[in-house]
């Protein structure tokens, strides 16, 4: 009993809030990854590179223009274009050969990581936030918490709801869902499916770019982050279920919480919890918590 009462509630609250922040970031990255997989069965191993590219573009633009919003906008657009280019130039040539596509994106990610290292060097950058959100807000128990981190949680909620609305309430969402269920039938109905593919790839990549700017502002940008966010996206969708946006949300929450609590309370074994979570899910539901059986 003694031990229970001794819990540092303030630390616990801060760790929980940090976990939520990380979950938000993971969700934004992984939702794009999952969206792309859901429609095209492409495991985009270059998704982490798109994240990192977004972060660097956002850094450059916001530094030159002085506007953070312009930075995030530019990153979204540039990375969406890069994603569309990747689909058109390489992946569309081997549609349906999922393993070969995964290998090709691995090749792209290696070249991209190296070129970004050449351009921006090995040092870490921090994207400066607008003054309006560089403050702290009082929260119960935890004391105070960075405004920017709370805004990140709000942004993830907006993106989540927005994706859900787009997929379930709009015409393009209807096309995407139809494509997931029966691609050939959709083609037979006269829809330009390759164009839908490029569009979805652009949206998924754009989300990674936006996440890069947000991550670069709240945390930091450095080489190696691409691998980190690729890994988190992989585990999030393995846990949540490939191709499912609600699954990505649940997966992101579980993975980020496991990681944050693990690192806070048992520092040298933090990653083990994330891993154990993944293994447990695979043992019980190989298709992920909200995934459909293949």
């Amino acid at each position: 009993m003694e031990g229970l009462l001794d819990i540092n509630w303030r630390l616990f609250a801060i760790v929980t809030l940090n976990g939520l922040t990380l979950a938000s970031l993971y969700f934004i990255v992984a939702s794009g990854f999952s969206l792309i997989f859901g429609l095209m069965r492409v495991v985009n191993m270059a998704h982490g590179s798109l994240y990192l590219l977004g972060a660097y573009v956002g850094f450059e633009v916001s530094e030159t223009s002085g506007s953070w919003l312009l930075g995030i906008l530019a990153a979204g657009v540039v990375v969406a274009a890069a994603g569309a280019a990747l689909q058109v130039s390489i992946l569309s040539w081997m549609q349906g050969q999922d393993l070969r596509q995964a290998l090709a994106t691995i090749g792209v990610s290696i070249v991209a990581a190296d070129l970004m290292l050449a351009q921006w060097g090995g040092s870490a950058y921090q994207i400066s936030l607008p003054d309006a959100v560089s403050t702290f807000v009082p929260v119960p128990v935890a004391g105070r918490f960075a405004m920017a981190r709370l805004m990140l949680i709000v942004l993830a909620l907006i993106i989540g709801v927005g994706l859900w609305l787009m997929l379930n309430r709009t015409r393009i969402g209807m096309l995407i869902r139809a494509g997931v269920d029966d691609r050939r039938m959709l083609e037979a109905l006269g829809v330009n499916v390759p164009l839908v593919f490029v569009g979805v790839f652009a949206i998924g990549a754009g989300l990674a770019g936006v996440a890069g700017v947000v991550g670069g502002s709240v945390l930091s940008v450095s080489p190696g982050e691409d691998a980190r966010y690729l890994l988190s996206s992989l585990i999030v969708v393995i846990v949540g279920g490939m191709g499912s946006i609600p699954g990505a949300a649940i997966g992101a929450l579980l993975v980020a919480m496991a990681e944050t609590y693990g690192l806070a309370y048992t520092p040298t074994y933090g990653i083990v919890y994330t891993f154990a979570l993944m293994v447990a899910v695979l043992a019980v539901r190989p298709q992920g918590l909200l995934g459909r059986a293949a």
């Binding site: 999922d98 890994l231 585990i235 990653i271 993944m278 695979l282």
Partner: peptide, 19 residues
């Protein structure tokens, strides 16, 4: 199987790296 094996083994590999 297929890309799923690739993803899961990559996740295992990266988990070991961070460990």
């Amino acid at each position: 199987q297929g890309i799923y094996t690739l993803m899961i083994t990559l996740a295992v590999a990266m988990a070991f790296y961070y460990l």
